[in-house]
């Protein structure tokens, strides 16, 4: 799986959780760029992502991600570690 694959899967999760068809993520997207992305929906996104890839984040990992790209890479690293 590449970063682009994760990104497009992310996009679907975001559209679903935030209930907004118009979301178009890129690697530099941050919470400031998406209207509905607040601290609460952030948790809902995390849960959706954790369930989708069957992984778990720690609280400090969550705080270290500054944008969507870093999150995608974080997931790839976790998936690689699992195999």
């Amino acid at each position: 799986m590449t970063v682009q694959d994760v990104l497009s899967q992310f996009n679907e999760i975001f559209i679903d959780v935030l209930d907004d068809e118009d979301i178009k993520l890129n690697l530099e997207t941050t919470a400031d760029d998406v209207e509905e992305w607040d601290s609460l929906s952030h948790i809902q996104l995390i849960v959706a992502i954790e369930n989708k890839y069957d992984i778990r984040f720690t609280a400090s990992e969550m705080e270290s991600y500054r944008n969507v790209g870093e999150m995608c890479n974080g997931i790839l690293n976790k998936l690689a570690a699992k195999v």
Partner: peptide
């Protein structure tokens, strides 16, 4: 309170479904 209490609580209860919110 959002950053130092609510967020950690949300994170802790995140797999509790609606109760977790």
């Amino acid at each position: 309170f959002r950053d130092y209490l609510n967020k950690p609580l949300f994170f802790y209860f995140r797999h509790w479904g609606n109760y977790g919110l």
